[in-house]
């Protein structure tokens, strides 16, 4: 089906229908993805306020960005949230998947239960957990009513630990998916591997750690990319649970960008912050893509 070019005069019109059909894709790729990104990066070097203006100020916006406490809090929060999400969702997801893989009954019921939060909007998740973590009515009050008067558990109202309150909701929503991906990975492993490990008398946990997990590398990489790309985007959850509070304690970069672009009318700051977000993704994605493609080439 690949067109063969035999010196035909109007090669532009070959496959014309396919080209017409691809116009939306080409426009999206060029105008929005390439054009939009280039535009934002370009205007992050200007001092645009209410409207984008092409008056350049060099790296001023970036210097101001990294001198703003709010941004520093946002970056720190994202780092804590990111590391914890990565570790906990991988560990919990894998353990759940390993338990589900033991030929258990009611597997479908368990899977349905673990996965349903993922169908919900982050707003719904955030509001539900905001209610459960409400210090006057939620878990804290329930435990106090039981007689433990000094019990304190108010993560959403304590600036020091507020990001962990958001983490609880995030994990609740996301680990089901990770469990499903891991389970698919475990199911993809040849049963003979398990038999061979048995014959050699290797304990189960060792089989998992030294044989099964290394064999699940492709699934793990996919999972990692999925978790990582979800982390950078975290926004709705924070808005619903705390609106960034108390004070600015639960600010995240995505929210910082939104505030400066659409509320504070300081477009240049917003562009600079979003460019930093892009940069962080590039730093993660590029080495991964490079390694993956290098591997594929080596293995043919």
């Amino acid at each position: 089906m690949t067109p063969t070019y035999q010196g035909r005069p109007f090669s532009l019109f070959r496959n014309l229908n396919a080209k017409i059909a691809s116009i939306p894709m080409i426009l999206t790729a060029l105008v929005i993805f390439v054009g939009g990104t280039a535009w934002t990066v370009f205007y992050s070097f200007t001092n645009s306020k209410l409207l984008p203006r092409a008056s350049f100020v060099g790296f001023d916006q970036y210097e101001r960005l990294w001198a703003t406490p709010r941004w520093l809090v946002a970056v720190e929060n994202l780092a804590i949230y990111g590391v914890c999400t990565l570790v906990f969702s991988l560990v919990i997801g894998f353990v759940l998947a390993a338990l589900m893989d033991q030929k258990i009954r009611f597997e479908n019921t368990f899977r349905t239960i673990f996965l349903y939060p993922f169908a919900l909007s982050f707003i719904v998740t955030g509001l539900a957990w905001q209610w459960i973590l409400n210090p006057n009515f939620g878990i804290q009050q329930v435990v106090r009513n039981l007689g433990w008067e000094s019990f304190t558990f108010d993560p959403l109202y304590n600036a020091d630990i507020v990001i962990y309150g958001i983490l609880i909701a995030g994990l609740w929503q996301g680990t089901g998916l990770i469990m499903c991906l891991m389970l698919a990975g475990l199911r993809g492993i040849d049963g003979d591997i398990w038999k061979a490990a048995r014959v050699d008398g290797i304990p189960t946990w060792k089989t998992y750690v030294f044989i099964v997990i290394p064999m699940m590398r492709p699934v793990l990489v996919t999972t990692l990319v999925i978790i990582a790309s979800g982390i950078v985007k975290v926004y709705d959850l924070v808005v619903a649970q705390t609106s960034g509070g108390p004070g600015i304690a639960s600010e995240v970069p995505a929210k910082y960008v939104y505030n400066y672009m659409f509320l504070a009318q300081n477009l240049g700051q917003g562009f600079a912050a979003s460019t930093m977000m892009l940069l962080s993704v590039v730093i993660v994605i590029v080495p991964w893509a490079y390694l993956e493609f290098a591997r594929r080439r080596r293995h043919g």
């Binding site: 993805f33 939009g36 977000m277 993704v281």
Partner: peptide
């Protein structure tokens, strides 16, 4: 993979 925030304003 580009964060949506980068393309919001364009």
């Amino acid at each position: 993979f580009i964060p949506y925030q980068v393309m919001l304003y364009p």
